[in-house]
Structures are given as C-alpha cells and as structure tokens.
Design a protein around this nucleic acid. Structure first.
Lengths: 96, 96
DNA sequence: ATTGACGCTACATATTTAGTAGCATACTTT
DNA sequence: AAAGTATGCTACTAAATATGTAGCGTCAAT
C-alpha cells in the first residue's frame, strides 16, 4: 500500500490537513504545526512535493489538485472519526 | 483531528491494514510487518486496543467492528491511491 | 521433562525528531 | 545606501523513538 508509506510518518498527515485549509509559507506552516522543527518540516515538504501532492507557489506552500483530492478523502474520514471519538469519550477509553 | 494523532505514527496504519485481511497472533503479525520490533508492536497494539479498534481474541489480534469500518475506509482510499501511484510511476516522480 | 508457541519485557544500539541558531536571498522602509 | 524584515532552508546538539536481540513466564502437547 503506497499510501501507508507516504502517510505513515510523523507530521505528513498533519501537513496535508493544515494545507487543506489554506496555503501557508514555510514559517506559517511551521507555526500551525505546533512549531515542528524546520528540519522535519522541510523533509516532509520535499517528500510531498516529490509525490506531487504539494507545491510551492506565490502564496507559499499549497496542495495540488491531487493533494486536495486526498485531503478531501481524509476529511470525510475525519467526519466519521469524530463521531467515533465521541463514543470513545463516553466510555472513557481514551484516558491514560 | 483525532484520527491524525492516532494514525500518524509509524506502524499504526500498517497494523490496521494487515489485520484487515486476517487476524494474527502477536508473532505472526510481527512477521507480516517486516519483523517490526516487539517493543513498538506492543506499544501500538496497546494504543489500538485502547481505542477500541483492535481486540485480542482466541485467534489472536483482530479488528473490532469499528476497526473494520476504519480499515474499509482506508481500503477505498487505497484504491484511489493505487491509481494515483500509477501516474506517479509514469512520470518518475517516485524515484530517488 | 522437554519442546514449542504464546504474549510480552529488558536493554543496548541506531535512527529519527526536537530545538535553537543562523545563513543567504529578496523586498521594504528609512 | 542602510537597516529592517520576511522568505526558504541548513547546521548542529540534545532528546525521543525505533530497532534488534535475548529472554522471561505461561500454557499445551509430546
């Protein structure tokens, strides 16, 4: 599964998520992602750009059309996940 | 996004993926996941169990109904991803 | 009793990430 | 022209995480 190798790294999914709202410059993006270290941020951005999911344009980093398609799929996954998270809270499964 | 924190770790997504095919014992599961270290495997299984996605039954570790629902969503994501991966190969974007 | 499979822990090593500082370039303001 | 400010990004050390290997305790079958 290709997608797993791509997304199964720290921050990758989060970056996709953050960029799906707005494009952002390197530094702004960094701020949005809990001040992730620039080292990793740059690594991930390289990968995502290499995969054609992200693109560096005038207004900073932004999702390509493919990246947006992927993010949309995750958004619907998210909707489902939130429902599910509510159930978890009810049963206190998340506590530790 | 709850799902991101859960899945944005190494092996988590992979475990879900592997278990979606068949249940597996700790050791078998380990073998299926490129002999991931038992330390991490156990960590992730704990988390996934804590989240109610995975369950340890008679035939080993297996997805709960919720886990299966999540895996199904990823399966459809995977279908899309494979298409996309073919395009990538065509354009040699994946090479490095 | 020994063997083998199970889930899992211990611990030392290697890899990855975090955290901070700062460089090089460009554009803006003074 | 000088100084300030913002950009993307690299360097380097410390901390966190993963790997790799050994092995424990339990159970079932031989």
């Amino acid at each position: 599964m290709v997608l797993l190798d791509v997304l199964g790294q720290r921050w990758t999914l989060r970056l996709l998520w953050e960029l799906s709202h707005d494009p952002a410059t390197f530094r702004v993006l960094r701020a949005r992602c809990d001040d992730v270290s620039p080292t990793v941020l740059n690594q991930r951005l390289k990968e995502l750009r290499g995969l054609g999911l992200v693109d560096l344009g005038e207004s900073g980093y932004e999702l390509t059309s493919i990246g947006m398609a992927l993010a949309a799929k995750f958004a619907s996954l998210d909707a489902w996940a939130n429902q599910w998270a509510q159930n978890l809270e009810k049963h206190d499964v998340l506590k530790d």
